[in-house]
Design a protein around this nucleic acid. Structure first.
Lengths: 203, 203
DNA sequence: ACGTCACTACAGAGTCGTCGGTAGGTGATG
DNA sequence: CATCACCTACCGACGACTCTGTAGTGACGT
């Protein structure tokens, strides 16, 4: 794929535009982490990559389209980043390592937590994205749970009952962690919850 | 010296003014639910109560102070609304009824979920509030758990381990519920989680 | 009963900054 | 010479907030 030497300014080659796009997306993620989407300006993103606002608009014609591109980029990372695995060889075990990987990228977590919050408001451009993503993620979790333990988990819950809880724990812990990184151990807490799901009930 | 109630900026308000203030706070909650805090304008809030923007600023001298007042109001509701219970007679049981009560006020949930999301961004006026609130809520949950089950829960977790999970589940479920009310049963899911905590581990 | 006077509860008009977006270019690259 | 990668210049809308008034209200002295 990529075949272009990259430099912030002045390097010429065909792929210059594409490199710029990626720079812009990275900058956008940072700015959104700092100010949210509604609170951030495309001018701020542009400045971060050494462009004018209009220069940025050359690549992303509207602010909303920039956001969509950020969202899409995240999906690409999620599916392409990890060892193979577009589809379905996830286990509860490497779900924890995913959380671990997330914990290493606080700005990314901050960005998407901020967007998640905004997305519950009316007519938010990320609303549809999170709506779909939740549906999909719950389904994924459900099938992971089923693959690990079958329809009924050791703890007595069904996979369908546990899936939304699993998603909720991941999201919810992130907020606490963002507010007090020292007070909340993201990975340990998540592992504790997974342990809870896998504990066989007595009686 | 008079003894009339005083607003943050030192303006004294009579009975009429106090009623107005409450109206404004209610309207502000609605507007924030629709647009978030950064996305909403004080003019929109003012219009909702039939004031001009300047009229509103008579009561709350800045947008930030309006938000602070909203936050404070919520705390007052939380501690004053429910049967007695400023302090500590909560149990796991009526924690679930609290969730139930929340589920009946979607706009309120929406408002505070939106604010929670924004609050992770830099210099957000609600940042300190959520920071403190998380700390306090976790402590409260911990002591409730301890009162219910002692230091070690039936499931094997300690109260300190379970508290952040409890908070995370409440927050996280709300986001899913706001995006798909039909797909997520807030109360049932929460009860399932509580059941999980209280399940005795085998062997 | 009446005038005064402080104070509350607003509104009109305006300042100043920032926002997203458009129009129309220019110079380099291929 | 067409296309790409950008920039200058600009616009209309809207943001929070200030300055400056003014109608009403209640307390109080006379």
């Amino acid at each position: 794929m990529s075949s272009a030497p990259v430099s912030p300014n002045g390097v010429r080659h065909g792929a210059r535009g594409r490199a710029r796009r990626e720079e812009i997306l990275r900058a956008a993620i940072e700015v959104i982490a700092e100010r949210g989407f509604r609170g951030s300006s495309i001018a701020a993103v542009a400045e971060k990559v050494g462009l004018t606002q209009q220069g940025l608009l050359h690549y992303f014609p509207t602010k909303d389209e920039l956001l969509i591109a950020v969202l899409r980029q995240r999906d690409e990372w999620d599916t392409g980043d990890s060892p193979e695995a577009a589809g379905n060889d996830w286990t509860m075990g490497n779900l924890a390592t995913l959380v671990e990987a997330n914990a290493a990228r606080p700005e990314l977590i901050r960005t998407f937590s901020a967007l998640l919050g905004e997305s519950v408001t009316e007519d938010h451009p990320a609303g549809a994205y999170f709506h779909d993503r939740y549906r999909g993620t719950r389904e994924d979790m459900e099938s992971i749970l089923r693959r690990e333990w079958g329809e009924d988990l050791p703890s007595g819950l069904t996979a369908a009952q546990a899936a939304p809880l699993l998603v909720a724990v991941m999201d919810g812990l992130q907020f606490q962690w963002l507010h007090e990184p020292e007070a909340v151990d993201l990975v340990a807490a998540f592992r504790a919850f997974v342990g809870l799901l896998g504990t066989r009930a007595a009686e």
